[in-house]
């Protein structure tokens, strides 16, 4: 299990990286944390001719607040997110979700950008990004563009990033005061990708739900937002009875597929259970925050 040979380009700047990617089409790949890519290369399921290593682009590793927006550089290590006070304060949903991503040694190298660009539909962060209405900033030799998270994820391991394009930043609106949240998942073992994960946010006041987001990992080819369930929250009394109904709607709406580890029926069961539980936790946090 050794990777096939490739040409190695160590980028020392973003332009350098873009130059390295240019002209190779799909044969060139960005190497970030390598925690997905190198595993696939060892199995020879992926054989890039050129590997552009962006690990020296320390100017892509940051977490900062910029006028109402939380900006996370693509090369930010997942473990940096995990231990960041800024994230804990401004994006507690991500802080909660990140702990479900693999294990500490994987998060020490795995990056936020790599995780999103890899676009595994059972991954936690894409669901979080969609739930929070994140936007992705990208660069290519043609220039910069921004892509809404909703438009970014296409299919398993497939995004609207062009092959010569670099994801440089994730922008997330700063956490609105009083919004509750929860990330929950069921995975085969601790640290595994989710069978089903749910990223939930909730705003409620005076015993009434005002709005919420429900986005799932593991139930479709990309993160799945269930608008019908979200709408069903609005205006209803905040509490278990409502959440039970909403969970039922969500379970009915999703169209998961079956694989060895989980049938569609089981995934629906998990959607039902996790939705209710996540909303309960989110409500509790919402009330505590208020």
């Amino acid at each position: 299990m050794k990777p096939a040979p490739f040409q190695y380009v160590r980028a020392s700047s973003i332009d350098d990286a873009l130059a390295g990617l240019a002209g190779h089409g799909d044969d060139a790949k960005v190497l970030a944390g390598g925690q997905s890519l190198i595993a696939l290369m060892n199995l020879r399921l992926v054989r890039p001719a050129v590997l552009v290593d962006i690990n020296r682009l320390s100017d892509l590793a940051y977490i900062r607040q910029e006028n109402g927006t939380l900006a996370i550089g693509a090369l930010t290590r997942q473990s940096a997110v995990e231990s960041s006070d800024v994230i804990a304060r401004l994006c507690p949903l991500m802080a909660e979700a990140i702990r479900f991503v693999g294990h500490r040694p994987i998060r020490n190298r795995g990056t936020v950008g790599g995780n999103l660009a890899h676009a595994d539909p059972t991954s936690e962060l894409p669901a979080v990004a969609v739930a929070l209405g994140a936007t992705f900033v990208t660069r290519s030799q043609k220039g910069q563009r921004t892509i809404a998270a909703d438009d970014f994820f296409v299919a398993p391991l497939s995004t609207t990033l062009a092959s010569n394009e670099l994801l440089t930043e994730v922008r997330i609106p700063v956490w609105p005061a009083g919004q509750g949240w929860a990330f929950m998942e069921v995975s085969p073992r601790a640290g595994d990708y989710a069978l089903v994960g749910v990223a939930a946010t909730l705003r409620a006041a005076d015993g009434v739900c005002q709005s919420g987001r429900l986005v799932y990992s593991g139930v479709g080819p990309r993160p799945i937002r269930v608008a019908k369930a979200e709408q069903a929250l609005v205006g209803c009394s905040s509490g278990e009875a409502t959440f039970r109904e909403v969970a039922e709607i969500a379970a009915g709406q999703v169209e998961p597929s079956s694989d060895f580890h989980a049938t569609a029926d089981y995934r629906r069961d998990l959607v039902r259970a996790l939705t209710r539980r996540a909303l309960m936790v989110a409500l509790d946090r919402c009330q505590k925050g208020a």
Binding site: G34, Q35, A39, P105, N108
Partner: peptide, 26 residues
């Protein structure tokens, strides 16, 4: 050699990492 078992763990600059998921050049 696909990142799951952890047998290959070392510290890189003080942090644990899977060496089967890291190229030496990096």
């Amino acid at each position: 050699e696909h990142g799951v078992c952890g047998m290959c763990t070392v510290l890189i600059d003080g942090q644990t990492a899977r060496t089967c998921l890291t190229f030496a050049v990096q």
